[in-house]
């Protein structure tokens, strides 16, 4: 699996990395227990600061998506994913609300909006968003 960073994007680099790693797990490109490169080597290959990668890994570890082993280094959590937490539901609600409001103002129907959501979900779990 490849990580692609857009240095000119408004999305912070650490957030781009977090999103892509979660997308990788969702699509099955990354399996539980899969090793990830060390902070140093991923930062070096991307040509970005150590702290950026470290921040992304730390966030994902706190959420329970990643584990840090003393021997194996950073791996995708082998004991399963964190599940739907209250914090996640709040985040989901907030982001959906923003998008739903704009969709309504722009005249997108509730059905079309729901269909978009379902489509995004399907393509996330099949990796449809990625070019194969």
């Amino acid at each position: 699996m490849f990580i692609e960073m857009d240095l000119q994007s408004e999305v912070p680099l650490y957030a781009q990395l977090v999103d892509q790693l979660i997308e990788g797990i969702a699509s099955g490109a990354l399996h539980p227990g899969d090793p990830l490169p060390s902070v140093r080597s991923l930062a070096a290959d991307l040509g970005i600061n150590l702290h950026t990668v470290n921040k992304a890994y730390t966030l994902l570890k706190q959420e329970g998506f990643l584990q840090v082993h003393r021997k194996q280094g950073v791996v995708v959590n082998a004991e399963g994913m964190p599940g739907v937490t209250e914090a996640f539901e709040r985040k989901l609600d907030a982001q959906l609300k923003t998008l739903a409001a704009e969709a309504a103002v722009r005249g997108l129907s509730a059905e079309a909006f729901a269909e978009k959501c379902a489509g995004a979900y399907r393509s996330a779990i099949t990796g449809g968003g990625e070019s194969l």
Binding site: M1, E4, M5, D6, P35, P37, S41, L42, D45, L46
Partner: peptide, 12 residues
């Protein structure tokens, strides 16, 4: 280009 790509498994 401002795009950077790295492989997660390129060092395996």
């Amino acid at each position: 280009s401002g795009k950077r790509v790295a492989g997660l498994h390129s060092r395996l």
